[in-house]
Nucleic acid binder design. Structure first.
Lengths: 120, 120
DNA sequence: CGGGATCCTAGCTGATACTG
DNA sequence: CAGTATCAGCTAGGATCCCG
């Protein structure tokens, strides 16, 4: 359950950011939350390929790091909504930069996909 | 040796970027190459905590994806230099955004480090 | 110096079952 | 609905030893 902290976090700004956004799932979750609050089941669908275990774990870590807010509505059936905290919101430029680069890449590299080949 | 490709890469720009910058090591390598070409041993030192295996593997994948250039000087002892390709250079805004966010975070969150505790 | 080859473990996926 | 729990199977990654 423990996360591995880069030794340079706290020294290098890039390492610090990586530390908090440490997995691909977290970044994809951020991408989706940047467009507004989402329910657990919505994220499960929109973050294509994520397992329920990793979604839960990622959300817990993001919440612990105060990047994501978790709101529980005491209803039946229960409803839980996830949204970005101000700190999470402040990461928008980071995700945007990735989106911009990805767009440009897709536009200029026709059907380019990893050259290292092979996977499902 | 195969990399896992996110199903959404090719559709979602963010997923596309993650796919090519798929590990923390690659990002840290990029950070270091953005300041100029580096030798293998220099990277081994500057990318604190990376294992030789992961450094080699990351460099190979970055090279295959044409983000990094690998130049071998046929000398004795051998010398190999790594540098960014134009495509790699174009990722500068992405790394910069991460650096900026990290700097701000470090400045506003005194000695903040992951709350999930424990590692290494 | 710049890796390649091995071994071994932590962590992820996927499936299934259960709960407040 | 939004999880928790568990277990098998695979793989990413760390450690170590070796080589041209």
């Amino acid at each position: 359950m423990s996360r591995k902290t880069l030794e340079q976090a706290g020294i290098c700004p890039v390492a610090t950011t990586i530390n908090l956004l440490s997995s691909k799932w977290k970044i994809l979750i951020m991408r989706d939350l940047l467009t507004g609050k989402k329910r657990y089941s919505e994220l499960k669908t929109s973050v294509v390929g994520v397992s329920q275990k990793m979604l839960t774990q990622s959300l817990r870590e993001l919440t612990a790091d105060e990047i994501v807010d978790r709101t529980v509505y005491p209803e039946v059936p229960p409803r839980v909504e996830y949204s970005l905290t101000p700190l999470g919101e402040s990461m928008r430029p980071v995700i945007d930069a990735m989106a911009d680069w990805g767009s440009e890449y897709l536009a200029t590299h026709p059907q380019a996909m990893p050259k290292n080949e092979g996977d499902q």
